[in-house]
Structure formats: C-alpha cells, structure tokens
Design a protein around this nucleic acid. Structure first.
Length: 863
DNA sequence: GGCCTGGAAGAATCC
DNA sequence: ACGGATTCTTCCAGG
C-alpha cells in the first residue's frame, strides 16, 4: 500500500506538468520499449524541460550533415536529461576530465556547455541508487521501483528533483555521467568510467561494487551462489564461492595463454589500437574484487595502451586544445538510455572521437564501400557454459567456425569487436544473460583478446589485410550468467527464463582519412544457447514447396534438426488481432519421413480464396517445443497435378517464435551521400518503421534525392534473399510495436516525390508468433493485409510482391490498438482495461510508468 | 591435466 | 495450495 501511495503521488506530481488529455493513439513506441525508458531521469528533469527546446539541436555526424536538426517531431518528448551531481558537488579538477554529452540521437552544437556543469562526481554515493537515485543510477522502471521501495525514498527523490530544478533547467540535456565515450583518449577522467554509467545499458546499471555491497542472496536456495569463476567439481566449496560476477567485467582470469595470444603478445599489435577504445573508462571499480584480475597484467597493459597507443584513433596531442574545444561535437549523442527514443542507426556511423559508441547503439553494417558481413554463420545451437562449468568450446559453424569479413576496406588492419547480443524483437544490445567467453586451446588459431566495453565483456580480434580482412571466430565461446544474478541487477528488466537466444555481434572501427572513425556492426543469426531447447526444439532448415493449392493434398517436405516422424506440423492463419483464426494439423506421411525430416500433406485451406493467402505452419515436438513458424502460401485456382514444384527455401533457423521476432542479420546501410539520412531513424529490429517525412526534419529534406534508402530486412523465416525496401531518402523510420501502436506502418514520401502514400497494415496485437510474422517481410511472401487479405493483397506468387495498401487515415480507437492487451517479451500478456488502464500483471509498475510516459508524451506533442 | 562434450540429476519456477 | 511440467543450474563422466 505504501508503494501504491507513492506511485499515485508520483503520478499526480507528473500530471501537474502535463495536460489532462491522454491520447495514446499516436504513441510511437511500445510498452516494451517504454519500460526501458529512463523514467527516473525524466522525473529529475525540470518541468521546463518538458518543452521542446529549439536550441537543443542535433549535431549530425558525418560531413553531409552539417545542419542542426530539431528532432522534435520524433524525439519528443524533449524532456531533458539533467546532469546534477549529488549536492551539486564539483571537484576542482573536474573540468579537465569531463566530456560534454550529446543530445538525443545527436549532439549539441552548442559548445557552450560547460564541462563544469556536466561534472559528475564519482563518489560512490552517486552510484548507489539507493542513496542517490540519479538519472544515471537506474534506467528502468523496474530498478526505479526497487530504488523507491519506500515512500520515503521516493519522497526524498522527488524533493531532490524539485530542489534541483533550476540547475536541471540550466543544464538542460547535459549528462554528468552521460557520455559513454569518456574523455578523449579514453584515458579515464573524473568519471572514471563512462560505462560505470548504467546509461548505456540497463543491464549494466548496477555496478559490481554496489552489487557486492548490496546484493542479497539471490534466492533462498540450497545452491550456493555463483562462483566467480570456473570451479572444479572436486573442490566445490560453497563457502569459497563468491557472489556471481554476472557480467564479470574482468577478462577471464583463468584464460590460458596456450595457443592463443597472450596479453604480452598483444601489446604492440596494431589491432590493439582499439584497446584504448575498449578500455575507455575501464570500470575497474566495478569489478568485484574476487573477479578482478589482481595481477594487474591485463589492466596495466590496457592502461598502458590508453596512454601509448592511441595514435590511430586519437587526435594528436597538438590538437588537444582544439579537441577540448570541440568536445561538444565529438560525441554529442546522448547514450541511448538518456533519450526517450532509441538511438538512430540512421546516423552516419562516423565519430570524431576515439571512444566507441555504446554497445547498444545501433550501427549500420555498411557505409560507402565498407561492409561488415558474417560470411559464415554460426550454428543455430551452441550450448553455453555456466561459470561453474568448464568451457564448452567456441561457437561453431556448420563447417568450422563462423567467419566475419570486412569488405571494401582492406588497406589497414582494424579491430573487430565481438560480443554476445540479444536476439529478441528489439534492437541489438548486449545480452544480459550471456557474455562472450574467450576460448583458448590448441585449436584456436585466431588472435583475440578480452576487453571490456560498457561493462560488457567483448573480444577484440584483428582483421588483417593479409587475411583478406576476415577472421575465423574460433576463439569465442558463450558464457551463461545465472538468471537470478542478473535479474537482481538494478536496471535489468529482461527476464532470463527462456531468454536463451543470442546473436553474435561484430563491430569494427575503421579510421577514416579525415580522422573520423567509422563504426560498422553486424550480427549473426540467432543462436540458441540452452541445452534443453537445443536438443528438443525442432528447427526448420528447409521446406518444399513453399506454396500450393488451396485444395491441399500436396506433400510438404520439411527438414531440420529435431524433426522426425513423431513431430507434428500445424498449419495456421492469424487474424488481424494476432489470434489464430484457423489451425489444423497436417497429416503426416510416416513412410516418407526420416530422421531429420517429415513429409506431410498440406491441409485444405479452410476458406475460399480468390487471391494468394499466406498462412503459417510450424513443427512441434510437443508442448512448448514448437519450431519457428514458416510461411506457406495458398494459391487459388491452382490445381495440383503431379509432384509439386521443388522450391526449397533455405530458412534461417531459430526465428524467434516464443521470444524473438528479430531478423538476424538485420542490417542497415548508410552512405556518405545521404542515402540514409540521419533522420532516417533507427529501426528496432522488427519495430518496423516508417513514418513521417520532411516535416519532421526540414533540414534534411532531400526532395530530389535519387538514392533510395535500402534497408535490407532479413527475416529469419524468409529466404536468404534480403528484402529491399526502397524508401525516399528522408523517410523517417520510427519504432513500431504493434502491441500498443496504431496498426499501420506508413511511408510518407517527400512532397516532391510522386510516391504515393504507402501503408503496411499490421495486426495490432503482438502475440507470440503473431503480427510480426504476419507481416512476414519475406521476399517470398507478401504483406498481407490481415484485415482483408483477399482484397488488398497483391501477391503475384512466391518470391514476389510487397503488398501495398492504401490505408484509411483514421486511427483506430484505443481499444483496438492493442492496449487491451500488451504482450511482453516472454509471451505473457498484460490485460489492460481500456478505460481505466488497469493492468493486471506482475510487472504492473513498468506498465504504469509506460502510461505516464504516454501521458507526458502526448502532452508534449500537443504543446 | 585441461579442455570439450553429452547427459542427466535435482532445484527452481511455471502452469 | 498442490502437483505435474518445464526450465535452470550443477554435476558427472568420457573422449
């Protein structure tokens, strides 16, 4: 009750700043995304910050983006992140070490930001969310809740906010911890570590320090808490165990140098020039003492790199003054968690600073001639090892190991950064429950070194011209962190249970002739990491044919791991609300089945079809053992004669059916000529996009641009041929989560364009296997307007057509927007009363904040 | 001896 | 509240 009172108090406090009308119809993000928003930051913002500040511009990066842009239209609400150190405490020398922080999705051109103003003390109190619920302390509603476990604490917080409002207004969007990029050269500043800031990633929001101090027993369990490292079975001693280091930021202490690159040999390696980048703000203080490498070899080495090997990434010392002066334009992009919106990968991936962008910062895989590609994908299953286990080896490919190659940039060696990322339906970010593990041994041939970025363990692998700028990833294993440990972290909103799919994410930093650093990123297909799932979940590798007559009867061959004659194949069709309209088992032809394949008869389609109809099917080995759904197209008026045409489609495996809707390898390309303009906002993987044209960003209006935006959307259930969606260059992509958004995706072309309004209708509900699959951005399939596929779809057959439907502009009422039901990542549904917005869920509070967010957002929009 | 791998027991959690 | 099912984590054993 006390908590509820607090929340109500908070709500009304917020509403004082906002208007009375709540209209969620144009709410541009999902509840899911909102839950991630740094609510507390906004709470600490000045009311004045709720207004859009036209001066808080958006310094676009890259030579082609000179103009400031007011991102208001899509960066709303422009609630400013303040940078108020506790007690406004400033240390004398702080100004030397503080880095100005950029604005949302961009930077501030206003170099007048005082670094003094942006100073943030490193004193532990600041970092202790319980003592100082700073904007950087916790970014999720969940952590916020935990921080405000009593009314007292909340009241205290609120009082602090009010007391600091003037400063907050003055500081506007400056962030004390703000920069994830640290000071130039990453030499470590007063912040100590930019990534001590949890701002980059909610899951890193709890420092190990505080974690050590405050961590309760994860659960009343007979099991000991996680050891900090691999433990020999014979010596298992619960008393000897330390709390889990979770993301143990220290490089694996026990890494054997055998057959691998040692720290020493790494020194001097040109590829190690990335070291300083990775070491920016090395969070030594974050490292639990028991997991910290006490020998110091690694840290000392890296620190040395910071001092000595920055040449390739850092401006020369002579330019230091200018560098300082230009700090405001180095990394003027606020870390993603400081913004209301997700970062925009549409930004040119060029940075003028030596510090790398945060790991959850979406980056394109291609820019100009340079493209980072996963040449050989990893297997879709890799059993991760626990800290209590020995290594389970490196990630493997079907033959050998994954291979990553950098195309178009072969003049110099560059550093490849590898980390384990998420594979859910949101943008790629470091996976909270998995981290990369350096594998050593005789068989490892690739040089790699563990580093820390954003408190996340990464591997750095050199890409050498002599190796054709490619690397075989045979040195990377996957470590599973205990769910209980991670879920207890402040700021962590993800749930570990059944969140067992990852992607291997690769980044490169390519120095440009003009001194900028080009960052590219690509990711592997999803990789299932749990033992059980990997053993039992059927995976559809291929099936044939991909279409057939509505009369059914054709034999459909489906093959892949864990598929056998005992499997079932279920055909289904979903309605606009994501619910199943039709579901039927396909008859198995047991005599034609083999160990890894099944043959079924395509069932008769249940309705009369005058145009092609796309349905889905999946293979199941029992409850909760369903494969990814695959698309099958019923063709009207086609009589089946003789054997079906073979049209085997290689499927991406592990398309998230239960968890992830994310397209593996989802990539975004950009080029210097503005093909992908900065206001082409980020994608959120399946947050499909698109809305808003020039009015959102008049400065970037390129009415005559002939270069189309090409956004390959490679969805797992689709063929390997990426779908190329050509959009006007100034198209703005906005996140769209169908569960709470208007069920449409609209492309608004520039005024000069003759491209008509295009709308892809999306079912409003996002249920597992639901709407996003219905979207099925498959080049083989189509956008089928769920509400009336017969009428609006223009399917020419497999492998063709995007359905483009003229869409009525009326926004559906609240109730039809999916707000009656919100689907969480894990498939749980939150029931929402459309009138009272009563949410019945264990996660009520995050949604509660979401509602507040909606309210504020709308109010801001309408101001 | 250490690494890698597969299997499975038992606890934790979900349904 | 309870029991079965599922998932997670740890442990074992063999190559």
């Amino acid at each position: 009750m006390q908590m509820i009172s607090c929340l109500i108090y908070m709500l009304f406090s917020l509403l004082r700043f906002a208007g009375p009308d709540l209209d969620v119809r144009t709410f541009p993000s999902s509840a899911q995304a909102l839950v991630e928003q740094p609510f507390i930051q906004e709470l600490q913002s000045s009311p004045s910050c709720f207004t859009s500040d036209p001066h808080v511009g958006y310094q676009l990066q890259g030579p082609q983006y000179g103009a400031q842009v007011n991102p208001r239209a899509f960066d709303c609400p422009s609630i400013q992140i303040t940078s108020i150190a506790p007690n406004n405490h400033l240390e004398p020398d702080s100004s030397q070490d503080v880095l100005a922080v950029g604005g949302a999705e961009g930077g501030y051109s206003d170099a007048s930001w005082s670094r003094d103003q942006l100073y943030l003390s490193l004193e532990p109190r600041y970092r202790d969310p319980a003592l100082c619920p700073s904007p950087c302390s916790s970014l999720s509603s969940r952590s916020w809740i935990s921080d405000l476990s009593s009314c007292e604490s909340f009241s205290h917080t609120y009082d602090d906010v009010e007391g600091e409002l003037p400063d907050a207004a003055r500081l506007a969007m400056g962030s004390p911890l703000g920069s994830p990029f640290g000071s130039p050269g990453c030499g470590g500043g007063a912040f100590g570590s930019p990534r001590q800031s949890p701002c980059h990633s909610p899951r890193t929001s709890v420092t190990d320090e505080s974690w050590l101090n405050r961590r309760p027993t994860s659960r009343p369990s007979s099991r000991p808490t996680s050891p900090c490292g691999k433990r020999r079975h014979s010596s298992a001693d619960p008393h000897a165990r330390s709390p889990s280091p979770h993301h143990s930021p220290s490089p694996t202490p026990g890494a054997s140098p055998r057959g691998s690159v040692t720290d020493e040999t790494w020194v001097g390696s040109p590829a190690g020039a990335l070291g300083p980048l990775l070491m920016c703000g090395f969070p030594e203080l974050d490292v639990p003492s028991k997991t910290r490498r006490t020998s110091g070899s690694q840290l000392v080495l890296l620190a040395g790199q910071v001092d000595s090997s920055l040449e390739s990434f850092q401006d020369p010392p002579a330019e230091e003054g200018r560098e300082q002066e230009g700090l405001a334009e180095l990394f003027l992009q606020v870390p993603s968690h400081f913004t209301w919106n997700k970062p925009k990968p549409g930004n040119a991936p060029l940075f003028r600073t030596s510090s790398p962008p945060p790991l959850d910062w979406p980056l394109p895989s291609q820019y100009d001639q340079c493209e980072l590609k996963v040449e050989v994908q990893p297997k879709s299953y890799h059993r991760a090892h626990y800290e209590t286990e020995g290594s389970r080896g490196s990630i493997k490919a079907a033959a050998g190991h994954p291979i990553v190659k950098l195309h178009g940039c072969s003049e110099q060696r560059v550093g490849l950064v590898l980390f384990i990322g998420t594979a859910d339906d949101r943008y790629i970010r470091p996976h909270p429950f998995y981290q990369v593990h350096r594998v050593t041994g005789k068989t490892v041939t690739t040089m790699c070194q563990e580093k820390i970025m954003d408190s996340i363990k990464v591997l750095e692998i050199p890409l050498l011209p002599e190796n054709d700028m490619s690397a075989s990833i045979d040195c990377a294993g996957i470590l599973k962190l205990r769910n209980a440990d991670i879920e207890l972290k402040k700021g962590e909103t993800d749930i570990g249970r059944k969140n067992t799919r990852v992607r291997v994410v690769f980044r490169v930093a390519i120095p440009q002739p003009d001194g900028q650093i080009l960052w590219l990123q690509t990711a592997s297909i999803p990789v299932e990491c749990s033992q059980r799932s990997g053993q039992e979940l059927p995976q559809v590798d291929s099936f044939s044919p991909a279409s057939g007559s509505v009369e059914g009867g054709q034999e459909l061959l489906i093959s892949g791991p864990n598929i056998s004659a005992q499997s079932r194949v279920v055909f289904m069709e979903r309605g606009p609300d994501g619910r199943s309209l039709w579901e039927t088992d396909a008859r198995v032809v047991p005599e034609k089945c083999s160990g890894s394949s099944i043959v079924v008869e395509v069932p008769v389609y249940n309705k009369k079809a005058t145009s092609p109809v796309q349905v889905q099917f999946y293979v199941t080995n029992g409850k909760r053992r369903k494969s990814v759904t695959q698309s099958f197209t019923y063709l009207p008026g086609i009589r089946h004669h003789g054997p079906p045409a073979v049209a085997t489609v290689k499927q991406e495996r592990w398309e998230p059916d239960r968890i992830s809707q994310n397209p593996p390898g989802f990539s975004l390309t950009a080029s210097r000529n503005g093909t992908l303009s900065p206001d082409v906002a980020y994608y959120g993987s399946c947050d499909l996009l698109v809305q808003c044209g020039p009015q959102s960003n008049p400065h970037l209006h390129h009415p005559h641009s002939s270069a189309p935006l090409q956004t390959p959307l490679m969805y797992p259930q689709t063929s390997s041929v990426p779908l190329q969606v050509s959009l006007p260059s100034q198209t703005t992509l906005i996140p769209l989560q169908t569960s709470v958004m208007a069920p449409q995706i609209t492309t608004i072309p520039p005024p000069a364009s003759s491209v008509p309004l295009q709308t892809f209708s999306v079912p409003p509900h996002s249920s597992p296997g639901g709407s996003q699959r219905d979207l099925s951005l498959s080049p083989r399939s189509t956008f089928v307007t769920p509400a009336n596929p017969q009428k609006d779809s223009v399917l020419a057959g497999p492998g063709e057509a995007l359905i483009i439907k003229q869409e009525p502009e009326e926004q559906p009422p609240l109730g039809s927007l999916g707000l009656q039901e919100i689907t969480l990542d894990d498939g749980r549904k939150l029931d929402v009363d459309p009138d009272l917005l009563l949410i019945k869920t264990k996660k009520l509070l995050p949604v509660f904040f979401t509602i507040i967010y909606i309210y504020i957002y709308q109010h801001n929009i309408q101001m």
